[in-house]
């Protein structure tokens, strides 16, 4: 087993939370997060403030790393090999090659096989997921639409990947060559996925999770874990919301627990209706 995918397996059935400082990292750890994503601005603020979004200051990432015992992740721009090398030099546990930051390369994603550090990458559909896996991604997550507090895009991406997986596992061997061409990946990867009916790496959800019910919904649709970006620390009661999302992620199939943890959480993050979000500000379109 590839150790990079090995760590991804350890993060299953858990919640990874975006944090912007040590105080938030400790709240996330105390609430039961399996990992934190250290970044300077959560997606909702990146969206609001605009400008080029880059890798965070390594010093801030190092401070967060020193303050918690759980794994720490951080984001690099799509295709930004040097930012990834810097994070690897820090000794970060996981790198998110993320569409939330401004892409650095219009032609290539990072060749992730050359790193010892595992990578997670976003995907809207099976072809995109397989291309990232072929480049060495140890973990796939839906892109959703980060910073919106709106779950609809994550649901769309999870359903899309699941239905394409089902179609692939039911297809004939004679179709593999043409599917490999369509998805732009080696036929061996198509064959592997067709035989097992699942991705060879864990499949998580991200982008728009704002409530415990959102986490439970996306888990019921097949997500093995949940990334929460702005949903925790843009809510009225971050600590309570963080705990409730962790609990809902474990007991996603127990409505009586979901009821109990959903009560009295205060105001959730505001959120954005997709119809009011112009095409050019949709982050899920970044990457290919």
């Amino acid at each position: 087993m590839d150790l990079r995918t090995g760590l991804a397996n350890m993060l299953c059935n858990g919640v990874i939370m975006d944090v912007v400082n040590v105080e938030q990292a400790k709240i996330a750890e105390g609430a039961g997060a399996v990992a934190v994503m250290a970044l300077e601005r959560v997606p909702a603020d990146i969206r609001k403030q605009g400008g080029v979004a880059r890798m965070s200051d390594p010093r801030m990432i190092e401070e967060i790393k020193a303050s918690v015992s759980i794994p720490v992740m951080a984001k690099v721009r799509i295709g930004h090999i040097a930012e990834a090398q810097i994070l690897e030099a820090i000794g970060i546990d996981f790198i998110d090659e993320s569409e939330v930051l401004t892409p650095a390369d219009a032609a290539f994603h990072i060749n992730k096989k050359t790193f010892k550090t595992p990578f997670v990458c976003g995907a809207c559909n099976l072809g995109e997921a397989l291309r990232r896996i072929n480049e060495g991604a140890a973990l796939i997550r839906t892109k959703g639409e980060a910073g919106t507090g709106n779950i609809i895009e994550a649901v769309r991406h999870m359903r899309q990947i699941t239905s394409e997986l089902t179609a692939l596992s039911q297809s004939e061997g004679s179709q593999y060559e043409s599917m490999a061409r369509e998805y732009r990946v080696p036929v061996e990867l198509i064959e592997l996925v067709a035989n097992t009916g699942k991705l060879p790496v864990p499949n998580f959800a991200a982008g728009g999770v704002a409530t415990p019910a959102d986490a439970a919904l996306i888990r019921q649709l097949g997500a093995e874990s949940v990334f929460v970006g702005s949903g925790v620390f843009k809510s009225e009661n971050p600590e309570r919301v963080a705990k409730a999302i962790v609990e809902a992620t474990t007991y996603f199939d127990r409505p009586e627990v979901l009821l109990e943890v959903s009560r009295n959480l205060g105001k959730a993050m505001e959120g954005i209706e997709m119809g009011t979000l112009p095409q050019e500000s949709r982050l899920a379109q970044r990457g290919w």
């Binding site: 397996n9 350890m10 993060l11 299953c12 059935n13 858990g14 750890e29 105390g30 609430a31 039961g32 997060a33 399996v34 990992a35 015992s69 759980i70 794994p71 705990k243 962790v246 609990e247 474990t250 627990v257």
Partner: peptide, 15 residues
């Protein structure tokens, strides 16, 4: 199983 012991511990106590 493997995972994060701090997460499991919190859920054990909570439930």
């Amino acid at each position: 199983p493997g995972g994060e012991s701090s997460t499991m511990l919190r859920l054990l106590e909570r439930f």
